[in-house]
Design a protein around this nucleic acid. Structure first.
Length: 807
DNA sequence: AGCACGCCGACT
DNA sequence: GTCGGCGTGCTC
């Protein structure tokens, strides 16, 4: 095996294939598939993944691999195959699929240097370049670029005076600490000590301390030693110099949970309903079969305990478990439950960790130092090799769908891996996605139901308040009389309230009260939103920013003001109405700092505030006994989005939020304010009636030919020139239409809901199909031909199979 | 994606 | 004549 097939780190259509390289003798046998390597590619050096080994290359003259980047492959057989599967299913580049499966730290960084060619001296160079190349040092390309001397350098490179060096750097560094070890056998320590000069008292003390603190030959942190002994590094240095101590750099894991202890918890006894639900899971584990279960359990019905005990069984069989939770609910509370039960066997992967921390957690998984991983979407790629169960909590959450390439859904990946490992996949939710519930009704998934709350407590009572009615009665505030009175009541009783603001589609844009003018982004067809932090108007999509106008640019009226309700505005009004209330606000602004999310929640849990006011992020995981009132300020903002899942999302969110109230002994109340109280998603959420919502929504989906009745694929084209997108979109749609069967519905091309982003016009085509064996190859052709043909002209095509964002 | 190569217009 | 603009095509 002398040749390696490599996928190179160039995400482009033309390079989305393997390139063959010969393996230098010194690496023969150690370079294996799944390993990252540095390879020459054209004049550069870049990262690549070895896919397979073979005897001969496809072309006659092969370049050699420069060096491997790993000792052990980062992708095993299963993950390599999963990569190809992802590529095929999501139509992404192979390199993107591989990179999505690995922590960001493993993505290479590239650097470009210049160096004086051997045997030349600076004097031969152009005068203004000489200062850069003084003592044979490398000069970074950037430095030359900034000084505007690139053309001069180009010449020098051409005539052979200067050499360009390309270097691949690993992004993730292992963290190391300097440790000191006693380098003398115990029985000779006294001898050595006596051999020291009499004035070296500090050195003797250090030796004694080392004996004492690290008897078994364990090292001591160099930093700790200097601190404890109140000594300087020079003393230590001289001991090292004499060979009495040795210094080693030891790899350590960064510990995101440093200074935290997790109280050990033990399996709770299950209710009869839980027993019934867990039985099929356990038997699937025992039989080593693959089966997907939908665990449909109302809030507070004890789904987590089922997860925990299923994992327990898996661990007893010597296998591993993956638990996915939505990013937003990957709260310390959640982590506690798993760390509390399984202790150090748990690795945690979520976006709050630094690149280095994620890298460390990933390596713990790879080295089999943990048995359970709890994490967000990408944790589904955890490099375990003997998986016994995969659990997806809050299965309906849209954050399981990645909105950039590869546009995969964690649920699909989980089921792929479940089949590979012949293990169960558990999808848990109180409000399952229509897709999953439909599959369980058809028997594709096993349905496990928990419809009783563990404490047998009643579900909270829900009031729907018609805000139009409030307006008619002359109440122009954002709080209805009903909600306000209840709020006051809680304050008097010392109970807590959660106020939920659905920010989406409701953020603070600016509107002129006289002419209706709304301030828009000049580059994107979307309104600018007010950001208090920078006191400016900002675009969500391109980052454009401008000042807040004091008069309307259209009619010069001064009645231009914020519209919609941001959390800050609610807070202001709240302080005005209830000056004594202590309020904690949770939104992007107050939780952007690391750990602030947790701090605010803890404070609220400890009763340091009466009202918790926040956005989406408080809808989940909150479980405090003293919360007896939940208010939803405007339930219907999401309903008006151009998304066939709008009703489903609204229902899920309202159900979720309502579940925050009265989870323990005190009964809970929920007030939902809305302008469309008659909408079935709001009405049925208030009755906690998932089944009727499912029926109703299925009817709507059937009428609209949407999932789960049809699969959909969304193609979006964008280009600077409106005429061009329209033209190409039409040609493309005609081509697709000619290739697919006539039972398939093809909508468009039409302008996207956001017709322009970053000055690029966007057109889309929606394909709805039940069975379409030609779809994959047709779409590949579209990418191949149209992209190839128009990419140079600045056209981009994005294909989303099973989209969750229709914008 | 980069980067080189190559073919045309504007300059010392 | 040559410098440098960008369109074209290749990278094992």
């Amino acid at each position: 095996m002398n040749v390696a097939s490599v996928i190179v780190d160039v995400p482009a259509m033309q390079t989305d294939r393997t390139y063959d390289y010969s393996i230098p003798d010194e690496w023969k046998g150690s370079i294996v598939p799944g390993m990252r390597v540095v390879v020459p590619f054209g004049p550069r050096k870049i990262q690549g993944f070895v896919i397979e080994l073979k005897e001969k290359g496809e072309v006659s003259k092969l370049k050699s691999i420069v060096e491997p980047m790993d000792l052990i492959p980062v992708l095993n057989k299963e993950l390599l195959a999963l990569g190809s599967w992802l590529t095929e299913k999501t139509l992404c580049f192979k390199i993107s699929a591989f990179q999505a499966m690995l922590p960001a730290a493993m993505k290479a960084k590239y650097e470009k240097f210049l160096r004086l060619e051997e045997g030349r001296n600076p004097g031969e160079l152009h005068l203004s370049l000489q200062r850069f190349f003084q003592d044979g040092k490398e000069v970074s390309w950037n430095a030359i670029e900034e000084s505007g001397m690139l053309t001069l350098v180009h010449k020098e490179v051409k005539n052979g005076s200067v050499e360009v060096i390309y270097r691949v750097k690993a992004k993730g560094n292992k963290k190391t600490v300097r440790k000191l070890y006693l380098n003398v056998p115990i029985d000779q320590v006294d001898e050595v000590k006596d051999g020291l000069p009499p004035q070296a008292s500090k050195q003797k003390q250090i030796i004694e301390y080392m004996l004492d603190a690290a008897p078994g030959g364990d090292g001591i942190l160099a930093s700790a030693l200097t601190e404890v002994m109140a000594t300087t590094s020079s003393t230590i240095k001289s001991l090292v110099h004499k060979g009495i101590l040795v210094e080693k750099n030891v790899e350590v894991y960064r510990d995101p949970f440093e200074n935290k202890t997790f109280e050990k918890t033990f399996p709770l006894s299950l209710t009869s309903q839980q027993e019934e639900a867990i039985r099929p899971i356990l038997s699937t584990i025992d039989q080593e079969e693959h089966h997907t279960f939908l665990l449909y359990g109302v809030t507070g019905s004890g789904k987590t305990e089922i997860y925990l005990q299923s994992i327990q069984r898996v661990l007893e069989e010597g296998k591993e478990a993956i638990v996915l939770v939505p990013e937003i609910s990957l709260t310390p509370q959640m982590v506690h439950r798993f760390k509390g039960r399984f202790g150090d066997d748990v690795a945690v992967l979520h976006s709050g960790l630094s690149v280095g921390e994620k890298y460390d957690e990933w390596r713990k998984i790879q080295r089999k130092e943990v048995k359970v991983v709890v994490g967000a979407r990408s944790a589904v790629f955890a490099p375990f090799e003997n998986i016994g169960i995969i659990i997806i909590d809050e299965e309906h959450e849209t954050s399981y769908k990645q909105e950039e390439n590869p546009r995969y859904h964690a649920r699909d990946v989980a089921i792929y891996r479940g089949e590979f490992h012949q293990c169960p996949v558990i999808l848990g939710s109180a409000t399952p996605s229509l897709e999953s519930f439909a599959r369980s009704s058809k028997g594709v998934y096993g349905l496990l139901t928990l419809d009783k709350r563990m404490n047998d407590g009643p579900l909270p009572s829900v009031d729907i308040v018609d805000m139009r009615e409030e307006l008619r009665k002359g109440n122009r505030s954002m709080f209805s009389t009903n909600l306000f009175e209840k709020l006051q009541g809680r304050l008097e009783k010392g109970e807590q309230t959660v106020l939920f603001l659905n920010r989406r589609g409701h953020s603070s844009f600016i509107m002129c009260r006289d002419c209706g003018f709304v301030l828009q982004c000049p580059n994107c067809d979307i309104s600018l939103t007010y950001h208090r932090f920078s006191n400016g108007m900002k675009c969500h999509y391109c980052g454009y920013e401008e000042g807040v106008p004091s008069t309307c640019p259209e009619c010069t009226s001064e009645h231009i003001r914020y519209f919609g309700t941001g959390t800050q505005k609610v807070e202001e009004e709240l302080t005005k109405l209830l000056p004594d209330a202590r309020i904690i606000r949770m939104d992007v602004d107050t939780t952007s700092r690391k750990g602030s999310h947790e701090k605010l929640l803890t404070a609220f849990g400890e009763g340091k505030a009466d009202i918790l006011l926040g956005t989406q992020m408080i809808a989940k995981g909150l479980d405090f006994p003293n919360i007896t009132l939940v208010g939803v300020l405007s339930a219907d903002t999401m309903l008006h989005l151009p998304d066939f899942r709008a009703a489903e999302k609204t229902f899920q969110l309202l159900t979720q939020v309502s579940g925050r109230a009265g989870r323990h002994t005190l009964p809970g109340e929920v007030v939902i304010q809305t302008y469309t109280p008659e909408h079935y998603s709001i009405e049925l959420a208030s009755n906690h009636d998932y089944n009727r919502f499912y029926q109703q929504e299925m009817m709507m989906r059937k009428m609209g030919s949407y999932p789960p009745f049809y699969y959909i694929t969304l193609i979006t084209l964008s280009h600077e020139d409106l005429m061009k997108v329209v033209d190409i979109s039409e040609k493309m749609t005609a081509f697709i239409r000619s290739k697919l069967s006539d039972t398939t519905i093809i909508l468009g091309p039409v302008a996207s809901p956001i017709p322009r982003i970053k000055n690029r016009y966007r057109y889309q085509c929606l394909i709805k199909y039940k069975r379409e064996p030609n779809l994959g190859s047709t779409l590949k052709t579209v990418l191949d031909q149209f992209q190839q043909q128009y990419a140079s002209q600045g056209l981009t095509i994005s294909i989303d199979v099973n989209p969750y964002m229709m914008m």
